[in-house]
Nucleic acid binder design. Structure first.
Length: 283
DNA sequence: CTGATTTGACCGTA
DNA sequence: TACGGTCAAATCAG
Protein backbone atom coordinates (compact mmCIF):
# COMPACT_ATOMS: atom_id res chain seq x y z
CA UNK A 1 0.00 0.00 0.00
CA UNK A 2 2.25 2.58 -1.04
CA UNK A 3 1.08 4.79 -3.72
CA UNK A 4 -2.27 3.40 -3.37
CA UNK A 5 -2.21 4.25 0.21
CA UNK A 6 -1.17 7.75 -0.38
CA UNK A 7 -3.72 8.35 -2.95
CA UNK A 8 -6.26 6.79 -0.77
CA UNK A 9 -5.35 9.10 1.96
CA UNK A 10 -5.87 12.00 -0.18
CA UNK A 11 -9.17 10.86 -1.40
CA UNK A 12 -10.20 9.99 2.02
CA UNK A 13 -9.40 13.41 3.21
CA UNK A 14 -11.59 14.86 0.58
CA UNK A 15 -14.28 12.47 1.32
CA UNK A 16 -14.08 13.28 4.91
CA UNK A 17 -14.53 16.85 4.17
CA UNK A 18 -17.55 16.17 2.16
CA UNK A 19 -19.03 14.03 4.76
CA UNK A 20 -18.12 15.48 8.00
CA UNK A 21 -18.02 19.05 7.13
CA UNK A 22 -21.23 19.68 5.56
CA UNK A 23 -19.61 22.81 6.38
CA UNK A 24 -21.90 23.98 3.88
CA UNK A 25 -22.64 27.57 4.17
CA UNK A 26 -25.45 26.56 6.30
CA UNK A 27 -23.24 25.83 9.16
CA UNK A 28 -25.56 28.09 10.88
CA UNK A 29 -27.70 25.49 12.41
CA UNK A 30 -24.63 24.08 13.94
CA UNK A 31 -23.79 26.63 16.49
CA UNK A 32 -26.65 28.55 17.62
CA UNK A 33 -29.04 25.76 17.69
CA UNK A 34 -31.11 26.44 20.74
CA UNK A 35 -30.83 22.84 21.64
CA UNK A 36 -33.46 21.63 23.86
CA UNK A 37 -32.41 21.20 27.31
CA UNK A 38 -34.20 19.29 29.82
CA UNK A 39 -33.43 16.12 31.53
CA UNK A 40 -35.63 13.20 31.50
CA UNK A 41 -38.12 12.71 34.15
CA UNK A 42 -37.74 9.14 34.68
CA UNK A 43 -38.02 8.24 38.25
CA UNK A 44 -39.36 4.84 38.48
CA UNK A 45 -37.54 3.23 41.25
CA UNK A 46 -38.22 5.90 43.71
CA UNK A 47 -41.22 6.90 41.99
CA UNK A 48 -42.92 4.60 44.29
CA UNK A 49 -46.01 6.53 43.67
CA UNK A 50 -47.02 3.78 41.46
CA UNK A 51 -45.88 1.44 43.97
CA UNK A 52 -48.03 2.68 46.63
CA UNK A 53 -50.20 -0.25 46.96
CA UNK A 54 -47.58 -2.65 46.11
CA UNK A 55 -48.76 -3.55 42.71
CA UNK A 56 -46.27 -3.83 40.01
CA UNK A 57 -48.21 -2.85 37.06
CA UNK A 58 -45.41 -0.55 36.54
CA UNK A 59 -44.75 -0.30 32.90
CA UNK A 60 -41.25 0.90 33.15
CA UNK A 61 -38.92 -1.92 33.01
CA UNK A 62 -36.28 0.10 34.62
CA UNK A 63 -37.88 -0.64 37.84
CA UNK A 64 -39.04 -4.05 37.23
CA UNK A 65 -36.82 -6.94 37.83
CA UNK A 66 -35.84 -6.80 34.30
CA UNK A 67 -32.48 -5.52 35.28
CA UNK A 68 -30.26 -4.03 32.75
CA UNK A 69 -27.50 -6.05 31.58
CA UNK A 70 -24.49 -4.01 31.75
CA UNK A 71 -20.90 -4.74 31.60
CA UNK A 72 -21.18 -8.31 32.49
CA UNK A 73 -22.92 -9.48 29.46
CA UNK A 74 -20.91 -7.41 27.15
CA UNK A 75 -17.74 -8.97 28.14
CA UNK A 76 -18.58 -11.99 26.18
CA UNK A 77 -17.33 -10.52 22.99
CA UNK A 78 -15.71 -7.22 22.78
CA UNK A 79 -13.56 -5.89 20.03
CA UNK A 80 -11.76 -2.73 19.69
CA UNK A 81 -11.09 -0.67 16.66
CA UNK A 82 -9.19 2.52 16.29
CA UNK A 83 -10.10 4.50 13.29
CA UNK A 84 -10.59 7.95 12.04
CA UNK A 85 -13.77 6.99 10.36
CA UNK A 86 -15.88 5.32 12.98
CA UNK A 87 -18.94 5.45 10.88
CA UNK A 88 -17.95 3.26 8.08
CA UNK A 89 -18.36 -0.18 9.36
CA UNK A 90 -21.16 -1.29 7.19
CA UNK A 91 -23.83 -1.36 9.79
CA UNK A 92 -26.51 0.92 10.88
CA UNK A 93 -26.34 2.08 14.41
CA UNK A 94 -28.59 4.09 16.54
CA UNK A 95 -27.19 6.19 19.23
CA UNK A 96 -28.78 5.65 22.57
CA UNK A 97 -26.51 7.48 24.87
CA UNK A 98 -23.49 9.58 25.40
CA UNK A 99 -21.40 10.03 28.43
CA UNK A 100 -18.39 11.90 29.55
CA UNK A 101 -15.92 9.34 30.69
CA UNK A 102 -13.59 9.83 33.52
CA UNK A 103 -10.24 10.94 32.32
CA UNK A 104 -11.30 11.24 28.76
CA UNK A 105 -11.32 14.48 26.94
CA UNK A 106 -14.24 13.60 24.80
CA UNK A 107 -17.50 11.99 25.56
CA UNK A 108 -18.20 8.42 24.66
CA UNK A 109 -21.14 7.64 22.49
CA UNK A 110 -23.17 4.49 22.76
CA UNK A 111 -24.78 2.84 19.80
CA UNK A 112 -26.80 -0.22 19.23
CA UNK A 113 -27.78 -1.94 16.07
CA UNK A 114 -30.80 -0.36 14.54
CA UNK A 115 -32.26 -3.78 14.26
CA UNK A 116 -32.02 -4.40 17.91
CA UNK A 117 -35.61 -3.51 18.31
CA UNK A 118 -37.01 -5.44 15.43
CA UNK A 119 -34.81 -8.41 15.53
CA UNK A 120 -33.34 -8.21 18.91
CA UNK A 121 -29.88 -7.89 17.57
CA UNK A 122 -27.58 -7.51 20.56
CA UNK A 123 -24.80 -5.80 18.73
CA UNK A 124 -23.62 -2.61 20.29
CA UNK A 125 -20.70 -0.36 20.06
CA UNK A 126 -19.22 2.61 21.76
CA UNK A 127 -17.32 5.30 20.00
CA UNK A 128 -14.94 7.56 21.72
CA UNK A 129 -12.69 10.11 20.26
CA UNK A 130 -9.11 9.79 21.26
CA UNK A 131 -7.44 12.60 22.97
CA UNK A 132 -4.83 13.03 20.40
CA UNK A 133 -5.10 13.88 16.79
CA UNK A 134 -7.60 15.70 14.82
CA UNK A 135 -8.73 19.20 14.93
CA UNK A 136 -6.46 21.56 13.28
CA UNK A 137 -5.51 20.64 9.88
CA UNK A 138 -3.28 17.89 10.98
CA UNK A 139 -4.16 14.33 10.97
CA UNK A 140 -7.70 13.33 11.35
CA UNK A 141 -9.11 12.62 14.72
CA UNK A 142 -8.98 9.07 15.80
CA UNK A 143 -11.79 7.24 17.42
CA UNK A 144 -11.78 4.16 19.48
CA UNK A 145 -14.69 2.00 18.60
CA UNK A 146 -15.55 -0.91 20.78
CA UNK A 147 -17.91 -3.50 19.42
CA UNK A 148 -19.84 -5.67 21.78
CA UNK A 149 -22.04 -8.55 20.98
CA UNK A 150 -22.62 -10.11 17.66
CA UNK A 151 -25.04 -9.16 15.00
CA UNK A 152 -27.84 -11.60 14.92
CA UNK A 153 -29.94 -9.49 12.74
CA UNK A 154 -30.45 -10.19 9.14
CA UNK A 155 -31.01 -7.91 6.27
CA UNK A 156 -34.53 -7.58 5.22
CA UNK A 157 -34.42 -10.32 2.80
CA UNK A 158 -34.20 -9.63 -0.76
CA UNK A 159 -35.37 -6.20 -0.25
CA UNK A 160 -31.97 -5.31 0.69
CA UNK A 161 -29.95 -6.61 -2.03
CA UNK A 162 -26.37 -6.20 -1.31
CA UNK A 163 -24.96 -3.12 -2.70
CA UNK A 164 -21.39 -3.05 -3.52
CA UNK A 165 -19.40 -0.26 -2.28
CA UNK A 166 -15.88 -1.21 -2.48
CA UNK A 167 -14.13 -1.07 -5.66
CA UNK A 168 -10.72 -1.47 -4.49
CA UNK A 169 -8.10 -3.97 -4.74
CA UNK A 170 -6.89 -5.93 -1.89
CA UNK A 171 -3.89 -4.68 -0.23
CA UNK A 172 -3.54 -5.90 3.21
CA UNK A 173 -5.87 -7.78 5.24
CA UNK A 174 -8.10 -5.24 6.61
CA UNK A 175 -11.34 -5.73 8.18
CA UNK A 176 -14.32 -5.42 6.09
CA UNK A 177 -14.81 -1.94 7.05
CA UNK A 178 -17.23 -1.57 4.38
CA UNK A 179 -16.54 1.66 2.99
CA UNK A 180 -19.09 3.72 1.64
CA UNK A 181 -19.52 7.14 1.01
CA UNK A 182 -22.97 7.38 1.34
CA UNK A 183 -23.51 9.02 4.43
CA UNK A 184 -26.20 11.35 4.84
CA UNK A 185 -25.41 13.20 7.87
CA UNK A 186 -28.66 14.11 9.30
CA UNK A 187 -27.29 17.28 10.54
CA UNK A 188 -24.11 19.09 10.80
CA UNK A 189 -23.88 19.03 14.46
CA UNK A 190 -20.91 20.61 15.90
CA UNK A 191 -21.33 20.13 19.50
CA UNK A 192 -17.91 18.69 19.49
CA UNK A 193 -16.69 15.35 18.70
CA UNK A 194 -20.07 13.88 18.88
CA UNK A 195 -20.74 15.51 15.67
CA UNK A 196 -18.21 13.48 13.94
CA UNK A 197 -18.93 10.47 15.89
CA UNK A 198 -22.47 10.73 15.17
CA UNK A 199 -23.16 7.93 13.04
CA UNK A 200 -25.74 5.89 11.50
CA UNK A 201 -24.16 4.95 8.48
CA UNK A 202 -25.81 3.29 5.76
CA UNK A 203 -25.68 -0.34 5.56
CA UNK A 204 -27.77 -2.84 7.21
CA UNK A 205 -27.10 -5.45 9.61
CA UNK A 206 -26.84 -8.67 7.98
CA UNK A 207 -24.21 -10.97 8.91
CA UNK A 208 -22.35 -10.95 12.04
CA UNK A 209 -19.10 -9.43 11.38
CA UNK A 210 -16.24 -8.45 13.35
CA UNK A 211 -17.40 -9.77 16.56
CA UNK A 212 -15.80 -13.07 16.54
CA UNK A 213 -12.30 -12.53 15.68
CA UNK A 214 -9.60 -10.21 16.29
CA UNK A 215 -6.55 -8.87 14.78
CA UNK A 216 -4.71 -5.81 13.92
CA UNK A 217 -5.74 -4.43 10.70
CA UNK A 218 -4.46 -1.67 8.72
CA UNK A 219 -6.44 0.20 6.28
CA UNK A 220 -4.26 1.45 3.57
CA UNK A 221 -6.38 4.35 2.91
CA UNK A 222 -6.56 5.65 6.33
CA UNK A 223 -3.79 3.66 7.69
CA UNK A 224 -5.22 4.07 11.03
CA UNK A 225 -7.77 1.47 11.48
CA UNK A 226 -6.67 -0.90 14.06
CA UNK A 227 -8.41 -3.85 15.43
CA UNK A 228 -7.81 -5.56 18.62
CA UNK A 229 -9.60 -7.44 21.18
CA UNK A 230 -9.88 -6.38 24.68
CA UNK A 231 -10.63 -9.70 26.09
CA UNK A 232 -9.01 -12.50 24.39
CA UNK A 233 -6.19 -11.28 22.43
CA UNK A 234 -3.62 -12.79 20.23
CA UNK A 235 -3.90 -15.05 17.46
CA UNK A 236 -7.04 -14.24 15.81
CA UNK A 237 -5.44 -12.29 13.18
CA UNK A 238 -5.33 -15.19 10.94
CA UNK A 239 -8.97 -15.85 11.25
CA UNK A 240 -9.99 -12.57 10.13
CA UNK A 241 -10.21 -12.13 6.49
CA UNK A 242 -9.58 -8.60 5.83
CA UNK A 243 -9.83 -6.50 2.87
CA UNK A 244 -9.10 -3.08 2.21
CA UNK A 245 -12.06 -1.16 1.48
CA UNK A 246 -10.69 2.20 1.76
CA UNK A 247 -9.17 2.88 -1.52
CA UNK A 248 -11.95 4.30 -3.51
CA UNK A 249 -11.62 3.81 -7.15
CA UNK A 250 -12.37 7.38 -7.61
CA UNK A 251 -13.95 10.10 -5.78
CA UNK A 252 -16.19 10.58 -8.64
CA UNK A 253 -17.45 7.16 -8.24
CA UNK A 254 -18.10 7.77 -4.67
CA UNK A 255 -20.01 10.85 -5.29
CA UNK A 256 -22.14 9.08 -7.72
CA UNK A 257 -23.16 6.64 -5.21
CA UNK A 258 -26.23 7.77 -3.55
CA UNK A 259 -28.06 4.74 -2.39
CA UNK A 260 -27.77 3.36 1.02
CA UNK A 261 -25.31 0.78 1.78
CA UNK A 262 -27.04 -2.41 2.27
CA UNK A 263 -24.55 -4.81 3.47
CA UNK A 264 -20.95 -5.46 3.89
CA UNK A 265 -20.60 -7.25 0.69
CA UNK A 266 -17.62 -6.82 -1.45
CA UNK A 267 -17.32 -6.68 -5.05
CA UNK A 268 -15.20 -9.20 -6.73
CA UNK A 269 -12.02 -7.62 -7.69
CA UNK A 270 -8.90 -9.15 -8.96
CA UNK A 271 -7.52 -11.27 -6.42
CA UNK A 272 -10.38 -11.88 -4.18
CA UNK A 273 -13.84 -13.03 -4.23
CA UNK A 274 -16.97 -11.68 -2.90
CA UNK A 275 -18.23 -12.24 0.48
CA UNK A 276 -15.26 -13.75 1.86
CA UNK A 277 -16.03 -11.74 4.80
CA UNK A 278 -19.57 -12.82 5.03
CA UNK A 279 -18.71 -16.40 4.76
CA UNK A 280 -16.27 -16.12 7.44
CA UNK A 281 -18.58 -14.28 9.64
CA UNK A 282 -21.14 -16.90 9.19
CA UNK A 283 -18.92 -19.53 10.56
C1' DC B 1 -46.10 12.51 11.76
C1' DT B 2 -42.35 9.50 12.31
C1' DG B 3 -37.95 8.31 13.42
C1' DA B 4 -33.42 9.70 15.25
C1' DT B 5 -30.70 12.21 18.65
C1' DT B 6 -29.76 14.48 23.01
C1' DT B 7 -28.97 14.23 27.71
C1' DG B 8 -29.94 13.83 32.79
C1' DA B 9 -31.32 10.25 35.72
C1' DC B 10 -31.12 5.64 37.00
C1' DC B 11 -28.76 1.33 38.00
C1' DG B 12 -25.31 -2.46 38.20
C1' DT B 13 -20.63 -3.59 38.74
C1' DA B 14 -16.08 -3.00 40.42
C1' DT C 1 -18.82 5.02 46.47
C1' DA C 2 -17.47 5.97 41.85
C1' DC C 3 -17.85 5.04 37.31
C1' DG C 4 -19.68 3.40 33.17
C1' DG C 5 -23.72 1.73 30.63
C1' DT C 6 -28.67 2.18 29.72
C1' DC C 7 -33.21 4.26 29.78
C1' DA C 8 -36.54 7.25 28.11
C1' DA C 9 -38.65 12.03 27.89
C1' DA C 10 -37.80 15.88 25.29
C1' DT C 11 -36.50 17.69 21.11
C1' DC C 12 -35.08 17.92 16.43
C1' DA C 13 -35.21 17.06 11.49
C1' DG C 14 -37.07 15.26 7.28
Amino acid sequence: MTTLGLQGDELLAQLRELLYLPSSPTTTSGDERPRRRRGNKKRCRNDNETNNGGEEAHPHHCCSGKTRKTTKQQKSSKYLLVTSVPDFDGYQWRKYGQKQIEGATYARSYYRCTRSAEQGCPAKRTVQRNDDGGEDGGNPAKYTVVYMGEHTCTANDSLEAPVILETTAVVVPAVSATSSTNKQQRRPQHDDDTAAINSSMAGSCCSSTTTTATGIIESPATSDITWSSSDHVDDYSGLFPVYDSWAPASLQEMEDFTGPIRSPVHIPADGWTIDHFLLHAAM
